[in-house]
């Protein structure tokens, strides 16, 4: 690195290591995607025994092991709700933390605690609490709460990172020009931090959609998708499991791609309009 002109051997070794790491990260998933197109007589491992969409079709049939469709819809709905609440709650709390207030550090440590308290305690505790209160556990009540304990810390920490790099001069300028505090929020702050909020939403959705550890004992009678998949792993002996994996991962990738696309479109539009808002907030 001190030799800026030439790449040393160190670079190539590290680059090779990085490539291996990426193969390690993505390789197994590729196998699953390929195997989900296994022929009708194909098994759980390579080689491919023909090619078919049979296992995908299988997912949407009623008599399958487990009830994929309603679990999927449940998880999708839950993820949307979690996403919206995470964005709103984190933004509000992030705004509050910009100025010191009494009890700020308690709330901060509470949020950090939510991240580091072992998930098994959260799920056991929420399940137990609903049980003792005589309230039926369900994905939209106990499950929702359990997911928020996981997504809110990420949301708030991202908001901290955003506001640590945010120049309050923009807001002061708006206020000097007579904008009300609502107008400052609506026309100055939100447009500037918009991409970060999309990022918070991305965390909210994906973390909820795939959440297992905190849902285990808190989801109630109706399984979320990850619980359903976990149940399937023990008795599925056909590639239908892989088809499910491919579909679920496809949904995750769609959401990730959509979020990244929105962020980059917003940023490019800014560049075109010559505004420097949001720079330095990489």
């Amino acid at each position: 690195m001190h030799d800026h002109a030439r790449r040393g051997i160190g670079f190539y070794l590290l680059a090779a290591f990085f490539v291996l790491f990426v193969v390690f990260l993505y390789g197994p998933m590729f196998g699953v995607v390929i195997l989900s197109f296994q022929g009708p007589d194909g098994g759980l491992t390579f080689p491919m025994n023909g090619f078919s969409f049979r296992w995908f079709a299988n997912l949407f049939e009623e008599q399958m092991v487990g009830d994929f469709k309603s679990a999927f819809l449940r998880s999708f709905g839950l993820a949307i709700i979690v996403m919206l609440l995470t964005v709103i709650f984190s933004l509000a709390a992030g705004l509050a933390f910009r100025r010191p207030f009494r009890g700020a550090s308690i709330v901060f440590y509470l949020t950090v605690a939510s991240l580091i308290v072992p998930s098994i305690l959260i799920t056991l505790g929420i399940g137990l609490m609903f049980d003792q209160l005589g309230i039926e556990s369900n994905w939209y009540s106990s499950g929702l709460g359990a997911h928020l304990t996981w997504t809110l810390p990420f949301g708030l920490l991202i908001m901290f990172a955003v506001f640590n790099r945010f120049d309050p001069a923009y807001e002061e300028a708006a206020r000097d020009l007579g904008a009300s505090s609502w107008q400052v929020l609506r026309h100055v702050l939100l447009p500037i931090i918009g991409p970060s909020l999309v990022g918070v939403g991305l965390f909210g959705f994906t973390l909820s959609f795939d959440e297992f550890a905190r849902t285990l004992m808190a989801a109630g009678v109706n399984n979320t998708l990850p619980l359903e998949i976990f149940g399937m792993t023990t008795n599925a002996t056909t590639p239908v499991l892989y088809a499910l994996g491919t579909v679920t991962t496809g949904v995750s990738f769609l959401i990730i791609g959509l979020s990244l696309a929105i962020i980059s479109v917003v940023q490019r539009r800014r560049l075109r309009h010559g505004s420097d808002a949001g720079r330095g907030m990489v």
Binding site: G31, V32, F212, I229
Partner: peptide, 17 residues
């Protein structure tokens, strides 16, 4: 990106390997 996908499916992915 893998962080935003399902852990359980990433584990299942090791079976054929």
């Amino acid at each position: 990106i893998p962080f935003w996908t399902s852990n359980i499916i990433r584990m299942i992915a090791w079976i054929p390997v």
